[in-house]
C-alpha cells in the first residue's frame, strides 16, 4: 500500500515535486489508461499461426486440448521501445533536445547538472527529470537553480523506463526549443537497455572508479554517445590512467565523444558546454 495516499498501489514508480509534499503520481495508474495497440508484428504473428495450421493439413489437431505453437517474433523490449518512440516524436515536434545521463552512484551526475544548467539557461530553457529509488534530494538541488524539475522515485526499480518518462513529461511544463536532461538511476548496468526517447546517452565516470570501467561494464559504454570523465582534479592523488580509460572506452565504442572535466574546479567544462550548445543549435 502506498504510504502517502493510502491507495492499493504496491511498489512501482512515483513522481514527486520539490516543495510540494502532497504531490505524487503513480506511474502505473497512467499505464492502465493506455489503449492496447495492435502492431503489424502481432498481425504477422497471427498469419504465421495460420500458415502453420494449414501446413499440418489433416485437421487432426482441431480437437479440444490441442497443443499448438504460436509464433510471436516479438522484441521483448517492444513495449518500452514503442513508448520511447512516442516520447521521441513529442520531443521532435517541440524541438526539445533530450540527454539521458547514466553513471554509477556518486560519479557526479547531479553536480554536473548544477554546474552546466546555469550556463545553458542563458540561451535555452532547461528542464530536468531526476531518477532515484527514493528521496527528492536531487530534484531539490535542481529546483534551487530555478529550473522546471520532477523526481521519479522508482521504489525497488533499478532503472528508468519509457513509461516513467512518458508520465513525467505530462507533469512538466516543457517549452519549445529547450533542453531536457534526464538523470537516470545511479547504476552502470540496467539503464543501458531502456530507451527513453532521448537524443543522446551520456555516460559519466569519475577518476575514483578505475580506468577499466568501460571493459567491466561494456554494455553502457557501447550504448552511449558521449563519455564524460569527471573529477580530473583528483588525478594526482589516485591511480587512474585517463588515457588508458579513454582507450578502453573507445575499444568498446569507437563512436564515443570523450570529454574530461572537473565539476569542482570547472576544468574542461567550457569544451563540453561549447559542444552541447553546437548540438542544440544544430538540433
Amino acid at each position: 500500500m502506498c504510504d502517502t495516499c493510502g491507495c492499493s498501489s504496491d511498489g512501482g514508480a512515483v513522481l514527486r515535486k520539490p516543495g510540494e509534499s502532497d504531490y505524487h503520481v503513480h506511474v502505473s495508474e497512467g499505464a492502465h489508461g493506455h489503449p492496447h495497440t495492435h502492431s503489424g508484428e502481432e498481425l504477422h504473428a497471427v498469419d504465421h499461426h495460420h500458415e502453420m495450421h494449414h501446413d499440418h493439413g489433416d485437421g487432426s489437431h482441431h480437437h479440444d486440448g490441442a497443443v499448438r505453437k504460436v509464433v510471436l517474433e516479438q522484441d521483448v523490449l517492444q513495449k518500452n521501445n514503442l513508448l520511447a518512440e512516442r516520447n521521441r516524436g513529442y520531443f521532435e515536434a517541440k524541438n526539445i533536445f533530450v540527454l539521458n545521463f547514466l553513471s554509477s552512484p556518486g560519479s557526479g551526475k547531479t553536480s554536473l547538472l548544477e554546474k552546466i544548467i546555469p550556463l545553458m539557461q542563458q540561451r535555452f530553457p532547461v528542464a530536468v527529470i531526476e531518477g532515484d529509488q527514493q528521496t527528492t534530494n536531487d530534484a531539490d538541488r535542481i529546483h534551487a537553480l530555478g529550473v522546471e524539475v520532477i523526481q521519479i522515485n522508482t521504489g525497488s526499480g533499478c532503472h528508468l523506463d519509457a513509461l516513467m518518462v512518458n508520465r513525467a513529461i505530462r507533469e512538466l511544463d516543457l517549452q519549445d526549443n529547450s533542453l531536457l536532461c534526464i538523470e537516470n538511476v545511479g547504476n552502470l548496468v540496467c539503464p543501458a537497455l531502456f530507451d527513453l526517447g532521448e537524443a543522446l546517452k551520456v555516460v559519466i565516470i569519475s577518476v575514483t572508479e578505475g580506468d577499466d570501467k568501460p571493459l567491466k561494464y561494456p554494455t553502457i559504454f557501447h550504448e552511449a554517445d558521449i563519455c564524460i570523465l569527471n573529477k580530473i582534479d583528483l588525478l594526482p592523488y589516485v591511480e587512474f590512467d585517463a588515457a588508458k580509460c579513454r582507450e578502453n572506452a573507445l575499444r568498446v565504442n569507437h563512436h564515443l565523444e570523450w570529454f574530461e572535466v572537473s565539476v569542482k574546479s570547472g576544468e574542461g567544462l567550457a569544451e563540453w558546454q561549447e559542444w552541447l550548445e553546437k548540438r542544440l543549435v544544430r538540433h
Binding site: 486440448g65 505453437k69 504460436v70 510471436l72 517474433e73 573507445l250
Partner: peptide
C-alpha cells in the same frame, strides 16, 4: 581494425509460445 560493428548477437525476442486450449 577496432572499427567493428556488431551485426548479430544483440537479439532479444520472444520467438514463440506453446499453448493448450
Amino acid at each position: 581494425s577496432l572499427r567493428v560493428k556488431i551485426v548479430s548477437g544483440e537479439e532479444f525476442l520472444i520467438q514463440s509460445i506453446t499453448i493448450e486450449e
